[in-house]
Amino acid sequence: MRKVLIAAAGGHERLTLVDTEAPRPGPGEVRIAVAAIGVNYADCVVRMGLYASAQEFVGWPITPGFEVAGVVDALGDGVTGLAVGAEVVAVTRFGGYATSVCVPTHQVFAVPAGLTLAQAAAVPAVYLTAWYALHALAHACPGETVLVHSAAGGVGGALCQFGRRARCRVIGVVGGPHKVEAATAAGAEVVIDKSSAPLWPAVKAAAPGGLDVACDANGPETLRHSYRHLAAGGRLIVYGFHTMLPRTGGKPNLLKLALGFVRTPWFSPLALTNENRGVLGFNLSYMFHRAPLLIEGMAAIADGLAGGELRPPPITTYPLDQVAQAHRDLESGRTIGKLVLLT
């Protein structure tokens, strides 16, 4: 088998493709012959050495990757309900950038009907993130106004779709005119292109009564204003800090990181109480052991896809040996939808 191995934190040159023996599934695990691998911005953060759970659970060297799709080719002891030859999609807490992976059965699901393996590999990480943010944390209700930053990206597009499905009014923010159509197609009723208009006056005009939910993975660039534009009872959902990280070069700038940390707002419990606002943050990689959560989320995703209320994201594919280029493109901020590696 082949897998991507990162020996130490660094730039794109750290992504090394190596040959090794295929793993053997342990009790309660299945082995998947991987056909497609979803690429997420978190994988880039892992490579830079800035992803806390990667160091807590694995350390160096590490193989990144949170989601794969392929065919079951071996079963561990005690596995029931899955058969060799079944097409599946799985969430992986790291290790997904490989042609063969072993995964606990509670992290393995049937490929949603009508999806190719490449499309299926693009679904779990971003759609579970969006579902957890909007439903498990924000409890978004019909008629509420939801702001989605990076609305043409993987998580952003999924948030727009879940928002539309929940009968919310979705305001999407994109970084260029070429992304407006994707955000609109995903379900944003209003799309703000921040490259051509001041962002926050446009948000105020689109939601003069304030936001009920703001979904923000930007970090210090927008967190403070996202919070300030909440209505009473509004919820700010935080799941990333992308603006603190580089768009080119693949290596973090320590000064930029330090400045970003200083600029990141702190929220007073007194202010939260007086202003009737909430701030909730999460990192899904810490919750892969929670089988009921994964099952509920993936069931909601499969149901939405089957009913046509959700659709798989637009994908751009790369061969596995072009993983470095995939990372470069994703970090640039120019991509739309999801990037997928093919083995």
Rank of each mutant, 00 (worst) to 15 (best):
E56S: 11
R247D: 08
V89G: 03
G156Y: 02
G153H: 02
L236V: 13
A188Q: 03
E331Q: 15
F94N: 02
S332R: 13
A300L: 09
A197T: 15
P177W: 01
E189I: 09
G240M: 09
V323I: 13
R31G: 00
D43R: 07
Q161N: 08
Y227M: 06
V91S: 09
H289E: 12
T80H: 10
Y97T: 02
A300E: 13
E21N: 07
H289R: 12
A207F: 07
L280K: 13
V126I: 10
R290D: 15
V72T: 00
F94Q: 05
I37T: 03
P208M: 12
G240S: 12
S285V: 13
L115C: 11
A130R: 02
G250Y: 07
L305T: 10
A98H: 01
I315V: 15
D19Q: 12
K3W: 00
N276Y: 11
G154R: 01
G143K: 10
P220L: 11
R224C: 08
N253E: 11
V191I: 04
L50C: 10
Y132P: 00
V146T: 11
V180T: 09
M48G: 06
G154H: 02
V155R: 02
V262T: 11
S268P: 11
A185I: 06
A232D: 12
A33E: 00
A217H: 10
A86Q: 14
G250M: 08
E67L: 09
